[in-house]
Each structure stands twice: as structure tokens, then as C-alpha cells.
Design a protein around this nucleic acid. Structure first.
Lengths: 103, 103
DNA sequence: TTCAACTATGTCAGATTTGACATTCCTACC
DNA sequence: GGTAGGAATGTCAAATCTGACATAGTTGAA
């Protein structure tokens, strides 16, 4: 089982201590994941605030529903780039993205 | 000539108005580039503060000198992911990255 | 329950990004 | 001049990410 799979399991509630101690992540790795999770949550929040479905957002930014689902789930196969671009597509400005990043 | 090439030229001083009006970028595209530029500048700043060469940083994060140069130059062929991971590798924490992102 | 809308998950071919390498450019010092 | 260390640029095969699709799971309303 690779880290990606482990991370998905961990996300589903199979967490005992902190994520990084369970997975044996370096501080950099877990910080990276935290950033991704923060932005993923922000994306979902913004989308719902605007009353959009994942399909709506996908077409607005030229992507697909499944990829939006993966973004919001902070899937390891989704880049920070894509999440940031999605936030920008919803109208979020860099400053707001910055605020969300470390939240 | 594609946008990537244009952006590289623009960076070299061939700028008249704002970057986005010269290149005909959408607000989202230029916001994305601004973010990348901000983090790229931060990376260079942090590296120099720590007295490291590009080669030093590259080996510290398992990359190569040329890629570090491209990160600092906000090259279109470099992802935000890589720049963020580099910043984390230098010891920057998410909150500090957030502050740099919109600066 | 059935239905419909929405969301999650897995897969894949094509696109993009990666580290590595070679090469060139730029200073600064001798 | 020459030499050396650092930085920029271009290229490429391998790795990673992407949109699209199929499919399965979830939710809520009738």
C-alpha cells in the first residue's frame, strides 16, 4: 500500500494520533498536505456559497466533475496548481487564497 | 509564439503597460502568475538569506540547479507545487508562505 | 421504495512537469 | 587576458497530472 492510498484511508477517519505520526511523514510532507487540505476545504466552501454543483464549477473552469471531487478531497493526484486555479475561477483573489492557505 | 515564450520576454523588461494587458491575459491567469512570481521571489530571498547557492538548495530538496533557477524565474514550466515544496524545504512554514503569496 | 441530482472513485490516453544534463551567460577576482 | 563559482536556458526521457468517461455511492424529496 502506498502513501497515496494510506492518505485516503486516513482521511476517512482512520486517524489515531496526528496524520503525520500515523503515516510517518516528514514535517515538510505533512505541511504540504495541510496546505492542500486547507485550500481544498476553502474550494468546497466557496462553491457551496455560490450555490454551485461540482459539475457547475467544472464547466466554469473547463474541467470535469470527477476532478472537482478529487480537488475537494485533496486527492494526492491533484496538484496545488489546479486547486489554486479553481479558487481563482470562483473569483477568489490571491489575498483571500493566502488567508485560506494557513487556516 | 506561445504565451510561455511571451511571458519570458515580458519578464526581461519588454513591458509597456501591465503584464496582463500586454499579453491579453484573463484576470485569473494574471492572478495566477502574480502568485507564482511572489512565491518565486520569496524562494530566492530565503535561499540567499540562508547563504545557499542554487545547487545547495537543489541537493537539499532532491532537485537540480537548473530547476531551481527556473523556479526563481517563475518559469511557466514550473508548477506552484514545486515552488511551495521548495519553500517548505527551506524551513518556511505554511503561514509564512501565505504571507508571501499575496505580497 | 423509487427517482433524480449530486458526489465519490477508478481508470486511461494524452498533456504537462520533473530531474538531469549540457551549454552558455554573468560577475568578480587575479 | 584567464579562471572559477554561480546562475540562466534549452532539451529530453521518465514521472506525474489532467480531463474525460464509466460507474458506484449518497442524499433528499415524493
Amino acid at each position: 500500500m502506498d502513501k497515496a492510498k494510506k492518505a485516503r484511508l486516513a482521511k476517512k477517519g482512520w486517524k489515531v494520533g496526528t496524520v503525520d505520526e500515523f503515516l510517518g511523514l516528514t514535517p515538510e510532507e505533512s505541511a504540504y498536505i495541510e496546505i492542500k487540505l486547507s485550500l481544498a476545504r476553502e474550494l468546497k466552501k466557496v462553491r457551496l456559497e455560490n450555490g454551485m454543483s461540482q459539475t457547475d464549477l467544472a464547466s466554469k473552469m473547463g474541467s470535469s466533475q470527477s476532478r472537482v471531487a478529487k480537488m475537494e478531497g485533496a486527492d494526492p493526484q491533484v496538484s496545488l496548481d489546479l486547486i489554486v486555479r479553481s479558487l481563482l475561477a470562483t473569483g477568489r483573489r490571491p489575498r483571500e487564497i493566502a488567508r485560506a492557505l494557513a487556516k
